[in-house]
Design a protein around this nucleic acid. Sequence first.
DNA 1: GCGACAG
DNA 2: ATCTTGTCGC
Length: 238
Amino acid sequence: MSAPPAEELVKQWESEQARLRQQVVEKDTEDWQKTPGFSGLERVGGVDLSFIKGDDVNACAQLVVLSYPDLEVLYEDSQMVTLTAPYIAGFLAFRETPFLLEALQRLQRKQPTLLPQVVFVDGNGLFHYREFGLACHLGVLSGLPCVGVAKNLLQVQGVNKDEEHQSQIAALQKGGDSFPLTAASGKVLGKALRSSDKSSKPVYVSVGHKISLDTAVRLTHACCRYRVPEPIRQFPEA
DNA sequence: GCGACAG
DNA sequence: ATCTTGTCGC
């Protein structure tokens, strides 16, 4: 048997994204999201896959749950996994989601009361070529509210890393300041957020699932001690 | 040929 | 993603 050509795979993945895209909920669905201080929010999660050296097949899938607002570790899980799908920009979810979901399912089985009320994901949500990045994918498949936080700008739908963008970054004065990432269509796909007073390089926040963009940005800022939100900043060692 | 390319 | 040391500044 021969492996399916990459082109065929990509077509298949595109249609899968289009199908799941319809299930994304782009607004606040939880009570805690609607309060100024997120009252009722007690657990925030983060997921990530980390690699070693030049090995792009074996990775460590990690899930951490922190208390809110103290951001103390309540739960952590690390599992070595073997990846099957290649990394193709725009299709990160097909490579990582299965293992992130497994981690959430292990938690649900062992300590369901520790399930996070929102999950931070390394990568984009709606800020994506087809408005369905990793954070949306994981959100829809898990049913949990998810927030996408990317450390680098994906140049997509007319959003460019040009001089205008650079000057908007320069105008972010303090932690919490942000500016919208607007697609050619006019839709705001995400926001560039200065996540702390000390970091001049912003993070790129977008809706994953079951949360509004403004709430996602506000929550991200509330979870940042440094540039990257605590739940996805640094994970325990493998 | 050159630039872009979440993780 | 990951490889890597020092260095400059507060």
